[in-house]
Amino acid sequence: MTRAYRVGDELPPLDIPVTRTLIVAGAIASRDYQDVHHDAELAREKGSPDIFMNILTTNGLVGRYLTDHFGPTAVLRKVAIRLGAPNYPGDVMRLTGRITEVAAGEPAEAVVQVTGDNGIGRHVTGTVTIALPGPSPKRSGT
């Protein structure tokens, strides 16, 4: 955690294969039993070509993308996302991120703009504020 983060830094992209299993597991783990997230037939009746990922799963994946990159001592402060093109089974979503603000302090905070694009367009646009503690005196990654 000693490296300095700078405005303009790009996060390495993360590809998320959007499997049917991920969509259903994410919906159930977030306790979202809306049929459009697990029942393809009912999803079609509601005008969707298939089941699609729920917003809570997208939120969780965006959070994971940030903490995977900044490490387990980084703490999410704010996550704001907007959804566009749905994540349907069989697609791949590529998450990308760019640091747009860094505020010094105890701890320092960074603002990261996140996008997630799939085969049909932009699934998610987000802004994440994350606290970046320096080398931790306690609880060292055990």
Binding site: Q34, V36, N54, I55, L56, N59, V75, L76, R77, K78, V79, A80, I81, R82, L83
Partner: peptide
Amino acid sequence: VVATDCEQEY
């Protein structure tokens, strides 16, 4: 129903 935006603070 479809969700479009989620803004959270922790």
